[in-house]
Nucleic acid binder design. Structure first.
Lengths: 322, 322
DNA sequence: GGTTTACATAGATAATTATCTATACTGTTC
DNA sequence: GAACAGTATAGATAATTATCTATGTAAACC
């Protein structure tokens, strides 16, 4: 048997002929002429190397080979129908996988988007990595993920970005800290306190550094901790004050106070970054669309900054509704 | 997905590429050039409607679609490998079915050939029909079977015949019948006895009729019975004498005697008939070859008359050994 | 015995496929 | 940054396929 020139189409025609029990009937059903079907059968028979059909008084009869081929054809076509179903799910992003990397601060927020998405699309597997800004950039360079979330625009080649949420940095102190009582605080006043800092390489630190530099001042007493959580707890324990993403604070935080420092909060934004030189899986596209549509439902309005349109415009063929 | 222009070859190439993890390696293995394989992949990808592969630092990676296609391809190709195995059995006649029709007398002999054949080829299903000459001819006219066994050459269109066994007709009487004692018996003497006859339409009757006509004599006392068995028992019970195929007699037959009538035995032969206007199933071809080779092992030499060569010459491509 | 029905064959043509060579692009690796 | 390895693209060509119309053939039906 020569498998090389065997097409699925040929098997479809064959199955139709067997089901119809007649060449002419099959031709009508397939919108072909009868000689065309006859010839296809001939080719198929040659490919297989044995006769498949015999003509008897009561119509066509299958040879043993013909029966075996009929079963094989049905199995094979059925298997490809299944594949087509899978494909449809995959192509609509209802199924699949993608990976996303977050800078540390974003980990307080993204679960509020990923959670509903996973419920809506249970067959999409999402892998989430978390690191500080430097680590996320390294992963970007190595093409390790599909979606990246930064809190400050990086200048990267092959990157397309779109902001979606505000990420204000505020100054905090213990709830009963003397500064917490004041109606307004100058930057200099703040810097007399010990400042609890994230490590260099983190976005929060970078933003703070560059903001202070703009203001022409420099830090005095500092203490460095590589975790937003640790800093928050440290501030509550009166180790000092800090400038942190507002999202790091719990909803209710009696033991912490946001300080009305002049010039604060520092405005920054989280944004999705995709690599333009790498295919974005359908499921990740589906996620971006989902975020675009539902952001307002899951996030407090004052944080929403939905600028995803420009990014999504790159995937125009994507079916908007599942 | 457009299934129409999907070939098995394309899937083979794809599977090879995935297994090799590289287009070039697959090309070498398939004895093709690298651009050829690249282009096949492109076509496949277009047929499916989604990217299948991605190029990363560590070689090619499958997309989710690519993985699904890989599995589907393996399943499908595996299914066709199974089919090819079946096909091989069918094409070598190791498996399949055929039907054969025997005239009555042959039913005493053909089981001795069909039995060993069925043991040697357990996956071949044989259907045996039995009738008298007229009934067998009617089946032949209606194309009802694959193989026909007659005991007298019919003049048929689209028939090819080959003799394989002698079928002598002998006169018998009860073991203690007066004629049984005589060293030689004339035809006239025989005809004074009551003759137990098969029905018109049977070959035995036809042969006897025409032989008697040649001899210029006619029957006097007769009794007609539509079964060789009934006649044999009737002769033993002294109802009369008969002319029957020698094969109808049991190996040991003390209650019956073969009479040395002049001019007897009437020589006739069994022969296989195949229709030249109808495909002979491989399994039936295999059976004829089997008979040709083993006839001498299963049948007493004096009955063997192996003239199947001419018939088998029509199937030259048939592999002689299983 | 003519008519119908169903299948096969022949011949033609446009589209598609299989395959090549030559060349361009893109990361790795010295 | 030059060389290299692996892919992709372009252009060419022979083979194959898909499909038609027209015609032949054989059995079945009045």
């Amino acid at each position: 048997m020569n498998i090389r020139h065997l097409t699925f189409r040929l098997l479809q025609v064959y199955v139709t002929v067997v089901r119809c029990g007649s060449v002419s009937a099959a031709a009508r059903q397939l919108h072909l002429t009868q000689p065309t079907v006859s010839q296809q059968l001939k080719r198929l028979s040659e490919a297989v190397g044995s006769p498949l059909l015999e003509q008897h008084a009561q119509g066509l009869t299958l040879t043993a080979t013909g029966q075996a081929l009929y079963q094989a054809s049905r199995d094979v076509l059925g298997r490809f129908d299944d594949f087509a179903d899978q494909l449809s799910d995959l192509q609509h992003g209802r199924k699949g996988r993608f990976s996303i990397v977050l800078v540390n601060t974003a980990q307080y927020v993204l679960p509020r988007l990923l959670g509903p998405f996973s419920q809506a699309f249970p067959d999409v597997d999402v892998t989430v990595h978390i690191g500080n800004r430097r680590q996320v950039l390294a992963r970007f360079d190595r093409h390790e993920d599909d979606l990246y979330v930064f809190s400050h625009p990086p200048a990267l080649a092959h990157a397309v970005a779109a902001r979606f949420m505000r990420n204000p940095l505020v100054a905090i102190a213990a709830g009963d800290h003397p500064l917490a009582q004041q109606p307004a605080i100058s930057l200099e006043q703040l810097l007399t306190e010990r400042l609890l800092l994230r490590e260099p390489g983190s976005a929060t630190r970078m933003l703070l550094d560059s903001w202070l530099q703009e203001q022409g001042v420099s830090m005095q007493k500092t203490l460095q901790m590589a975790s937003n959580e640790a800093i928050r707890v440290g501030v509550a324990a009166r180790m000092g004050v800090a400038v942190l993403s507002e999202h790091v604070l719990p909803k209710e935080h009696p033991e912490l106070a946001v300080l009305p420092v002049e010039g604060l909060p520092i405005e920054s934004h989280w944004q999705f970054i995709v690599r333009s030189d790498q295919r974005l899986p359908q499921s990740a596209q589906r996620f971006l669309h989902y975020v675009h549509e539902h952001l307002g439902h899951w996030i407090e309005p004052r944080f929403v900054c939905n600028e995803l349109d420009s990014l999504l415009a790159a995937y125009p063929a994507f079916p908007l509704r599942s």
